[in-house]
Design a binder for these strands. Structure first.
Length: 518
DNA sequence: ATAGGGTTAG
């Protein structure tokens, strides 16, 4: 039997861009195949799941379909649930309840609940749980497993366990979800309890344990488990490498990578980004260069995340030239990570103006900066002493980009004023902040006071700090430093403890005073 | 379709 829609749909396999999808869509319309639910469903699936940045088009495609079937509803829900705004999938769900002939099924709930998990929205998740319960779909294996994960993502592992205990015959996926749930909440004892209770384990169970051990800082247990594993896949390898890189064991991360190569295995892009991150943090430039060679040879230069990790490694190792080269030669669209990494690199090497210039280029390229980008650029400004520019950028953050500043952003501004000696301005800024200043904020300001020897303001800040952090430590050192810088070192008597503290800890500015003076 | 590894700041 010949199927007239086969030709058009086979094109979807190689369809990588929205532009080519639009061409296929045009073909479909020309042949009058758009009323075929199978064709319409495949098209929608491709632009809401397989392509990135094509959700708007998917939404339009859906809107212009007269009577979307359950597959189309579920596909759009799925696409929205994986997007930056998973809550939007709820409006499709509401539409489904009101206008569709097909009621929501197990697929709908699995995707909606995944969206709630992605959004870490307990309200959304628990309401969907109720809806599923009413429809008798909470006992469905896929739905139930997603509910277990959802509660853990929302930070309530007890609810995950309750849901799990209600499952009559949990399969290995459900067991693994419960195991993951405990680690997500850093509950090692709970995870171990499940692991020993599991009637069956697969490679995923082992990899979850591996990742969990490194997450809670049990590196020895992780290494022991890894060595004992008879079967390892690429996830096992990347998990141990990334776990070590995250825990500060950079040399060991490199060792495991070498071992992987020695066994003749091919690293994938995840283990490569992991080992590059270890290089970046430890300054292992020589190793990074050999990795770069491998990446070029193996044809992985086309992978965005690998390029991002590579340029970040070069810039952190002080090789700005190479970082620029990787950045410029990157194939395809640069991501927010590429831009932010490059901005940070320039800022850290002291090129404040260069960082701002690149930040502007980023905006022109159409990439929207996020909260992390603003931390980098604000740091660049305070480093380079660009106070006006910095504050302007900080204002734009809310006004132009609608990003709510976090305490870290406020800290950057305090640092910006503080380093420039605008202490009163910094103090006034802290007083009018919409979120309560933390001890870190006050300590930043106290550090600035000590640097410039502003005794009066330092005393005022000290009182605020004492309220924010009653069992503060190290602050009297900063305060006495202030007096020292102001030439009034006799006003504060240093105790033996604070002297020791001064020598032990690297408190900002401590080297400015000679300890012998006290 | 449900479970495991990811690069940017701090």
């Amino acid at each position: 039997m010949s199927k007239p829609h086969r030709f058009s749909l086979s094109l979807l396999t190689n369809c990588k861009t929205l532009k080519s999808l639009k061409q296929i869509h045009a073909q479909v319309l020309k042949k009058g195949l758009d009323s075929d639910p199978f064709v319409a469903g495949k098209l929608l699936l491709h632009c809401s799941i397989n392509l990135s940045d094509s959700l708007d088009y998917a939404h339009r495609l859906f809107t212009y379909t007269p009577n979307p079937d359950a597959f189309m509803y579920n596909t759009l829900i799925r696409g929205l649930g994986e997007s930056e705004t998973p809550q939007k999938s709820l409006s499709i769900f509401t539409h489904m309840l009101g206008y569709s002939n097909s009621p929501p099924d197990s697929f709908s709930f699995a995707f909606l609940l995944k969206g709630a998990a992605n959004a870490r929205c307990l309200r959304m998740g628990s309401q969907l749980h109720c809806q599923a319960l009413v429809r008798g779909l909470d006992s469905h294996a896929f739905v139930g497993t997603t509910i277990v994960s959802m509660y853990a993502e929302c930070g309530i592992v007890d609810f995950s366990r309750k849901m799990f205990d209600e499952m009559p015959e949990p399969n290995v996926v459900a067991w693994n979800a419960m195991l993951t749930a405990y680690f997500r909440c850093y509950d090692l004892k709970g995870a171990e309890g499940i692991f020993y209770l599991m009637p069956f384990r697969d490679l995923t169970s082992m990899n979850v344990m591996l990742a969990g051990y490194t997450k809670v800082g049990e590196l020895e247990l992780a290494k022991k488990l890894f060595l004992g594993m008879l079967i390892k896949d690429d996830v096992s390898w990347s998990t141990i490498i990334i776990g070590l890189a995250h825990s500060g064991s950079y040399d060991e991360a490199l060792s495991y990578f070498r071992e992987l190569r020695r066994l003749g295995l091919t690293p994938n892009e995840v283990s490569l980004t992991g080992v590059l991150s270890a290089c970046a943090q430890s300054g292992a430039l020589a190793f990074a260069i050999t990795l770069h060679g491998f990446i070029e040879k193996s044809g992985m230069v086309w992978i965005l995340s690998v390029n991002n990790a590579l340029l970040d490694t070069y810039s952190k190792c002080g090789s700005l030239d190479m970082a620029c080269l990787v950045f410029k030669r990157m194939p395809g669209k640069k991501s927010i990570v590429s831009w932010t990494s490059m901005v940070t690199g320039l800022a850290m090497q002291g090129y404040g103006e260069g960082a701002i210039k690149l930040f502007n280029e980023m905006k022109e390229s159409g990439t929207k900066p996020d909260g992390i980008t603003f931390i980098s650029i604000l740091k660049a400004c305070s480093h380079a002493g660009l106070i006006e520019q910095g504050y302007k950028i900080f204002s734009k953050m809310t006004e132009e980009y609608g990003i709510d500043p976090t305490i870290e952003h406020y800290g950057c501004v305090v640092n910006l004023y503080g380093r420039a000696g605008l202490l009163q301005k910094a103090y006034d800024f802290v007083i009018q902040m919409p979120i309560p200043p933390t001890a870190i904020i006050w300590r930043t300001l106290l550090g600035a006071c000590s640097f410039f020897g502003d005794v009066v303001l330092a005393e005022r800040v000290k009182e605020r700090l004492a309220k924010a952090d009653p069992d503060n430590s190290g602050d009297h050192v900063l305060l006495s430093n202030t007096y020292a810088v102001a030439g009034k070192q006799n006003d504060v008597v240093m105790t033996r403890e604070s002297m020791a503290e001064l020598k032990m800890k690297k408190i900002p500015g401590w080297s400015m005073i000679e300890v012998d003076k006290f």
